[in-house]
Nucleic acid binder design. Structure first.
Lengths: 206, 206
DNA sequence: GTCTATATCCCGATAGAC
DNA sequence: GTCTATCGGGATATAGAC
């Protein structure tokens, strides 16, 4: 991460950081599509040109929001997994956290997944996935010894968690806390089902 | 594909239908974010105000694209499932079709899932899901008699298929035909794993 | 009832002054 | 680093031609 602005001599000590915060606020209130550089600038009392001294374009700011999103998700997942007794339960807890993250940090989830951002443009954002990948290494304990199966299980669990989170975000499960709980439960039990049926992951599927 | 626009002058034969086609073309070439009413109008040789005689706003046109998307997906899934011998294989074929749809009909998938469209605003679009839901009723044959398990399995399979499709679209599995094949295989085998481990779907996940 | 012409407002982005 | 000024473009609204 490039160093942010120095201590505050100007209107904003750290416009760069303030823009990231403002972006999250705006996305939270109006959605990613309602977010604009202009709106963020307005909230911070700077002109619409000011952000471009810190971010090449709108997407670069969104990517920075994405980096923060992944940090927060990793924190949530770690906390959720802390109480789990078995590797299977840890995996299920991660899936649950994925869904809760989509619901509780909607702005961050949206920046990451429905902003239309081309993530490959931002190496920093790619690197931000690493902690998540590392957490998924629990699969090694589950599949002990079988690396192919472990890899397949990790992929399946990630996709399943993502699917539940995305469909929840899309309104497929309804709205409100009940929908979130339901989606989290579904993701967790689907994860356990994948673990239980994991021998099917290695066979050619056709 | 309906008749294209003559450039210029007089009344368009069926601007409404032409706009839907044009929208799909533009999204295919420039992505959902690159799509605008203005661009579609330009391609059809009408003024930027003309589309608003047929669609209240940009989202209403996107929703219409979404309706077509679901029709085409249902066709693809039906075709893919036609050769399957068992209910399990039909379910896996549907998951495979979901992923292939995301890859082969990127414009339609994007209109549906990464346009940021609020689908609940469009009842017609909600209704367009029905054929998909009906196809998922194969789960009843798999879980025979156990309605709760069948419901849980259908939800899990849909989320898993969606997750693989979304992550493929996001570039997580790389690009090109190999990535598509890999993602489709993963979705299919994950589906079979869910079937195999489905007894875990009913138990409280925590 | 369909489209053109026009006009307003907002946004992304850039250039150059302080 | 930020501001002023500015360009190009897109989303709509309205008025009027056919």
């Amino acid at each position: 991460m490039p160093a942010s602005a120095k201590d505050g001599r100007y209107h904003h000590g750290d416009l760069r950081a303030a823009l990231i915060d403002a972006a999250i606020d705006v996305i939270g209130e109006r959605g990613v599509r309602g977010f604009s550089m202009a709106e963020a600038s307005r909230r911070l009392g700077v002109t619409t040109a000011a952000p471009y001294r810190h971010f090449a374009d709108r997407d670069e700011l969104l990517a920075e929001v994405g980096v923060r999103a992944l940090r927060i998700f990793a924190t949530m997942a770690t906390a959720e997994a802390a109480n789990a007794r078995s590797p299977e339960q840890r995996l299920a807890a991660m899936a649950r956290a994925y869904v809760r993250f989509a619901a509780e940090q909607r702005a961050l989830f949206d920046a990451l997944f429905i902003s239309g951002l081309d993530k490959s443009r931002f190496p920093e954002l790619c690197r931000a996935w690493e902690p998540v990948d590392e957490m998924l290494l629990v699969v090694d304990e589950i599949c002990d010894g079988d690396a192919d199966e472990a890899k397949a299980l990790a992929d399946a669990v990630e996709a399943t968690a993502h699917g539940h989170a995305a469909l929840l975000r899309d309104g497929d499960y309804g709205d409100g806390p009940d929908a979130v709980r339901a989606a989290a439960d579904m993701a967790a039990s689907a994860t356990l089902a994948l673990v239980a049926g994991r021998s099917a992951l290695r066979r050619p599927a056709r």
